[in-house]
Design a binder for these strands. Structure first.
Length: 232
DNA sequence: GCGACAG
DNA sequence: ATCTTGTCGC
């Protein structure tokens, strides 16, 4: 892939990089067919980051492939610069994947970010694949509380430009805390919400992300999820 | 200066 | 993210 920038800049430079990358984002869904989706999760251990990417069949959500990679941590956790801490591990796991998914879910924000460049957006640019950010809490944006049922949602608005919708606060289960959904690259808000609901099966977080979290923690894919199954 | 602050 | 068991409520 095309190196877009250095991964160990000073925070001030990282911010400049994000401001520059923003113009490359394509916040539009092109209508492509989706047969496989992937989930990314990064676990942190002392001075190393372990990333897992799990691929699932869509729309039945059966996991069939996974890749794990571990990398040395070189960047601190700074709100707004999460991608610089976890990005290298994601790239390492991505290169180990035998095949790439049609769509990727991230644990974190897409464009619902101070500079419109959350980890789902930034990695979408690196990987050149449609991405969606599903965060467990808010980083940026203003909103009201959505209804209590699965599917209920409110708009996530840009703090500095309240007329601009940057995502959705979405209830993925009845009476459970909503998640913050925002498009990354090659995605729009409506489809990000649609795919997120389609990927949530009984739990607050999307299945791809849940599997990635388990695998990053050492779990194996179930036997009934053959790693070499033909998909088409 | 005082909060807010993905994972 | 991580420290940490059982427990209350939807």
């Amino acid at each position: 892939m095309e190196p877009l920038h250095d991964w160990n800049p000073k925070p001030e430079e990282a911010i400049r990089i994000q401001d520059e990358l923003r113009r490359q984002l394509r916040l539009r869904w092109d209508g492509r067919e989706v047969h496989t989706i992937g989930g990314v999760d990064v676990g942190l251990n002392d001075d190393r980051a372990r990333c897992a990417i799990v691929l699932l069949r869509y729309p039945d959500l059966v996991p069939f492939e996974a890749a794990v990679a571990e990398v040395e941590l070189t960047f601190p956790y700074i709100p707004g610069l999460l991608s610089f801490r976890e990005g290298p591990a994601v790239l390492a796991a991505w290169e180990k994947l035998p095949r790439k998914p049609d769509l990727l879910f991230f644990d974190g924000q897409g464009i619902a970010h101070p500079r419109g460049m959350g980890i789902a957006a930034q990695m979408g640019l690196w990987l050149q694949v449609p991405t969606i950010g599903v965060a467990k809490s808010r980083l940026y944006g203003i909103h009201t509380t959505p209804g209590p049922r699965r599917g209920d949602r409110t708009k996530l608005l840009d703090e500095r430009e309240p007329g601009r919708v940057i995502g959705a606060v979405l209830r993925t289960r009845d009476h459970v805390r909503p998640v913050y959904v925002s498009p990354g690259h090659l995605m729009d808000v409506a489809h990000a919400v649609k795919f997120t609901l389609a990927a949530c099966a009984g739990y607050r977080l999307p299945e791809p992300t849940r599997w990635a979290h388990k695998v990053a923690g050492g779990a194996e894919l179930p036997p009934e999820s053959p790693r070499q199954e033909r998909l088409l």
